[in-house]
Write a protein that binds this DNA or RNA. Structure first.
Lengths: 210, 210
DNA sequence: TAGATTGTTAATCGATTAACAATC
DNA sequence: TAGATTGTTAATCGATTAACAATC
């Protein structure tokens, strides 16, 4: 897909937060907001907000501010929230089940369609609104008959390293990684990692050095 | 605590990843590694590694490289992993239980000592290696009689906003936040957030724009 | 010693902030 | 219109990369 202009990585990482705050404003029925007010709400500079939003153009108006509804919708589109992502979860442990059953994701188009686990005791169980847990050994077959956009990987590192080639081979477009490891995948496969232990270490750093 | 030199935010965020890779090298019995080899392993530039590690000084040696054991230990200290953090978890849902029971955290000094939940059906239950679930209403009292360094908050945003003042009032030093919201806390309280939905949106952005 | 590799300075690149003319 | 506020350029700040002399 072609971008209007090239949007920098730093801006992209901020978009979901803008989106969240715009959602709050929308719920409150706010129609428009100035970069100044928005900056106080979000605790960033007004200058940064104007620079960032300007990439998308046309939602600000001098003397008035930004149209909340339009901006919310536009940022949603840019984030790819106007489509459906067929999503599976590898690992039906506590993290895997949490992801598979969280309604907030499906509300945004991340449709949870299957969980996979090696534990036979879990096979056939359901999570959330009827998402089935399948044997991990069925994954390969599943990928042959189902298009999968995103696979969330919520199993230990070693097992994860064994599963990833199956996902790649099976045509999964993106991996949402919760294992404490980095994957080696072809360029066309996207990996987005949530390294919880790294987050916790950044926290302990802050405790020790403040 | 006083830093030797001022270490930039970007470097700090990379430290846990260095630490993880050094742990792997240590397990493999590697005694020393050059910035060149390390850069190929970690897929960053050798220049960045030398710049980063140079902040701590004394672990590199010309013609030899870096001593793995010493560097691992030193970075561990800088990250604050040489001490114990009394840790509690607010919310005994799937995320809360996952955090409370994960052995990897306690192995690094993050001692999980109690969970709190408002659901009476869970009160008295145990998670992981005997960590009890208490009523949320007992939290205030608990904080009076126990020193808590870190509280992981794994409940929905609204409930979280109600609990945070109790944590702050109770002298909790740092909050590890899993709710989809930002907290307003005094300067001396640290907040480290894991915004899963934001991570997922960054992922969908990459899918749509690659 | 000769070769390898760091420590560190300088150059480049990118991101943030400030400022203000344009304009609703 | 006058006031408010954006869009956008220029200035600043910070982070990354390149280069090479120092040195083990």
């Amino acid at each position: 897909m072609q971008d209007r202009k090239l949007i920098s990585k730093a801006v992209i990482n901020r978009l979901p937060r803008y989106y969240r705050y715009l959602g709050l404003l929308k719920d409150q029925g706010v129609e428009h907001i100035s970069s100044g007010d928005f900056s106080r709400m979000m605790k960033v500079t007004a200058s940064q907000i104007r620079q960032d939003l300007n990439h998308f153009g046309g939602f600000g108006q001098q003397g008035y501010g930004y149209n909340v509804d339009k901006l919310y919708e536009e940022i949603g589109k840019i984030l790819g929230l106007d489509r459906v992502y067929h999503t599976i979860v590898i690992g039906a442990g506590r993290i895997g089940q949490a992801i598979g059953s969280y309604e907030g994701f499906s509300n945004r188009g991340f449709r949870m369609e299957a969980l996979f686990d090696r534990d036979p005791a879990k096979h056939g169980d359901e999570v959330g609104s009827g998402i089935k847990i399948y044997p991990l050994s069925y994954l390969k077959e599943y990928l042959k008959t189902h298009k999968v956009d995103i696979a969330a990987v919520a199993i230990p590192s070693e097992a994860a390293n064994a599963v990833v080639p199956i996902l790649v081979e099976g045509g999964v477009e993106a991996i949402w990684n919760f294992a404490h490891t980095d994957f080696d995948v072809p360029d066309n496969v996207i990996v987005q990692s949530v390294h919880l232990s790294e987050s916790l270490m950044q926290l302990s750093y802050k405790i020790v050095h403040h």
